[in-house]
Design a protein around this nucleic acid. Structure first.
Lengths: 210, 210
DNA sequence: GTCTATAGCTGGATAGAC
DNA sequence: GTCTATCCAGCTATAGAC
């Protein structure tokens, strides 16, 4: 790697830290105005600068959303990655779900940006998206290693967990009405997964609904 | 009731049908532009009129959202109300969940308006909200009559169903990837509800998460 | 790179003639 | 009630001086 002189490296480092400062200010704005309420004016004011300066660092407003998405995806990956102390399947699933729920409830706009599609014209770039995909794949792998590998069961678990988070956020924000159901929901889920196959093949696509 | 002459009744009927025509046009607009993409200009064009005329029938844009919410809530109540042929608990739960999911997937903006809080400054009026509350209460009563009455279990079921719908809509729109899991999810849920109480009181609030 | 100033557009809502 | 015309606020984004 002899691509840059020391001076260009300094420049790039300064540029990167300036970009980071803008993204930090962006998180502060959406925390108050909501994810869709981010405006370039507010952001410039909050960052102590003006809109043309923002455009010197980001080509568009969506580029800022994308940088936020990248930060969030990275944080998500780091939050899910640390090794799990527990060994038995129930404990691993519980810890995995617990981490996801804790991460989601910790920062609502971050959750909306990462996992809901709520910003009108925004699609994350492949680079930003990659972190989120990796983290989710890791989680899937971890579940597979403790025996939860059936595709249907994984889809059921994602529906269950996202439903839990969504209900908690929209019907009891700041409370614990649905969060406290985690253990019981996971117990229900694991009991079901460990149950022997049904006679007659009632699942796995043979039978249609209704 | 001697409040109005025949002529004022005619006027009110005409006025109501004009309002209905505007609301119908509004549904057509959101079907194309998304729920948040409704603009008074587009709506006026679609309804074959102009914006001042809209304001002759509705005091604000949110008043139009409210009329849409009222229509949707009424439709939801009518969709859930008809008597159920089935008697045994599993079949009743299955039919109830099936109706909810079918109604939700049938019209996505309608689902978003009714059950998600996605329109920025909009809160439904008490009158419009009443229909939705009634329909949900009826559903709860129906479940209670077949033995699903525990508050925790009801919250679990709502999380499960909304999670199912949300995953289906956002990760496989138009498909059946999560819809086909309905029977298995309900079987799992019912198995859990019919299970005898745990020894030691591990649920019902004694034990906190983590 | 950073500013002032503003272009260009779209939104909700209204004035006033008819 | 319905129109033409318009106001005013907010937005993203840019031109051009320094």
């Amino acid at each position: 790697m002899t691509l840059g002189t020391a001076s260009t490296e300094w420049r790039q480092a300064r540029r990167q830290s300036a970009r980071d400062a803008i993204v930090d200010a962006a998180w502060a704005v959406v925390a108050e105005a909501g994810l869709a309420g981010l405006s370039m004016r507010d952001l410039a004011t909050r960052a102590g600068t003006t809109t043309p300066t923002l455009y010197a660092y980001f080509g568009s407003k969506n580029a800022i959303y994308d940088a936020m998405f990248g930060q969030a995806a990275r944080a998500f990956a780091e939050h899910m990655a640390p090794e799990y102390q527990e060994r038995d399947p129930a404990a691993v699933v519980r810890e995995s779900v617990g981490r996801f729920v804790a991460f989601s409830l910790d920062d609502v706009p971050r959750y909306q940006l990462l996992f809901q599609r709520t910003v009108p014209g925004f699609e994350p770039s492949p680079e930003s998206y990659a972190y989120a995909v990796t983290a989710l794949d890791d989680t899937r792998g971890r579940l597979a290693r403790v025996g939860i590998s059936d595709a249907r069961h994984l889809d059921m678990l994602t529906a269950l967990v996202t439903g839990l988070v969504d209900q908690q956020l929209s019907n009891d924000p700041g409370g614990r009405r649905w969060v406290r159901l985690i253990d019981e929901l996971i117990e229900m889920f694991l009991d079901h997964c460990q149950r022997p196959e049904r006679k007659g093949g009632s699942h796995h696509g043979q039978r249609q609904n209704r």
